[in-house]
């Protein structure tokens, strides 16, 4: 910031920006990997250069890499702080800062080499740098990004402690350089396109998961429901099932003294679903479905019914599982 020429100022700002940018990349990569692990429910969900190793080593290597990224990112941030608050004061731990930056350069150098190797040996595998966002096969952009970050880490070895840019032109220049660098990294990151696609992505209706509560809530707000509400004899549906883009909900119904059921077809859609209805008489021999003993209040009924249903399902699940596991014959005995 203190050099007279614009070029020198830009270069100095660029150098000073590298530690926080690299730290952000490392911690972002770690967070994306952790989110993938949480969604997959397993640490073993392999992707990236760990695919090059034998199966038994993949899990510890994936854990090690994620932990290393986090620690390195934190180290880069922590060692960035100065001993004072004024611009130009030295780092409080210059040796540690240099160590962290050299380690970051080495990390990205190894990463670039691993990606080249992965591209040659397993061309269909994604780099896994940012978890699920990095599922595309490793391309030149990913390799170039690692190489550029290696150079960035090397240039930052002598960068000073963290400081706020001076107000006015200096701050604008600083922010401009930051934005330009982020844009350059984004261009080299195939993950950005994937993330944008996911942000705007909506499942086709036949694949969409929608809680039954939302279907019932939409139904009870609808005109079709109000039209039939007076003749519906139970607060809880006797049946609910789904086919493709529609969820069907059936209620017992009073129709001219005879037993019947009203069925609502509710579109599987988050907002303003289409709703259709029909009254279907019960077969002559079949008695009407008994209404629940206690009809709870409307609001409570919705949550109560589903809560109880989940409870019943849950208890059944544990029961079956428990019985299955305990009841299973050990292989040695079975044989």
């Amino acid at each position: 910031m203190t050099t007279p020429g614009l070029t020198a100022t830009v270069l100095a700002d660029l150098r000073d920006l590298q530690p926080p940018v690299i730290a952000g990349m490392l911690m972002g990569g770690c967070a994306a990997k952790l989110s993938r692990v949480l969604r997959a429910g397993s640490l073993d969900a392999g992707l990236g250069p760990t695919e090059l190793f034998p199966l038994r080593l993949r899990r510890p290597l994936a854990m090690l890499m994620c932990a290393f990224e986090l620690c390195l990112g934190l180290a880069l941030v922590v060692t960035l702080f100065p001993v004072g608050t004024r611009q130009g004061v030295p780092l409080f731990a210059p040796r540690a800062a240099t160590g962290a930056r050299v380690a970051a350069a080495a990390f990205f150098l190894v990463a670039a080499s691993a990606l080249i190797e992965l591209r040659a040996r397993r061309p269909a595998v994604g780099c896994g740098c940012f978890g699920d966002l990095s599922t595309r096969p490793v391309g030149l952009r990913s390799i170039a990004r690692s190489a550029v970050l290696t150079v960035a880490a090397l240039t930052s070895i002598d960068s000073p402690a963290f400081y706020l840019p001076p107000r006015g032109r200096g701050a604008v220049l600083f922010l401009g350089i930051l934005c330009a660098e982020i844009a350059a990294i984004a261009v080299m990151s195939p993950e950005v396109g994937e993330a944008l696609v996911r942000l705007g992505y909506s499942d086709p209706c036949e694949l969409r998961r929608l809680p039954a509560e939302r279907t019932l809530a939409a139904l009870r707000r609808s005109r079709q429901w109000r039209r039939h509400a007076g003749a519906i004899t139970a607060d809880l549906p006797v049946d609910m099932w789904r086919e493709l883009c529609w969820r069907y909900v059936a209620f017992p119904y009073r129709s001219a003294g005879a037993g019947a059921e009203v069925v609502f077809a509710v579109q599987v859609k988050r907002r303003r679903p289409a709703i259709q209805s029909a009254v279907v008489p019960l077969p002559a021999a079949a008695p009407a479905e008994p209404a629940p003993d206690v009809a709870p209040a409307r609001g409570a009924g919705r949550h109560g019914a589903l809560g109880a249903a989940h409870g019943a399902l849950g208890s059944g699940r544990h029961g079956v599982l428990g019985a299955g596991r305990h009841g299973a014959m050990p292989l040695s005995k079975a044989l």
């Binding site: 997959a40 429910g41 073993d44 969900a45 992707l47 996911r198 992505y201 499942d203 086709p204 209706c205």
Partner: peptide
């Protein structure tokens, strides 16, 4: 392994 099956790609269009 059974628990490691890769996640399905997002569907771009109706099935």
């Amino acid at each position: 392994r059974a628990g490691e099956a890769p996640a399905p790609a997002p569907a771009r269009s109706h099935v």
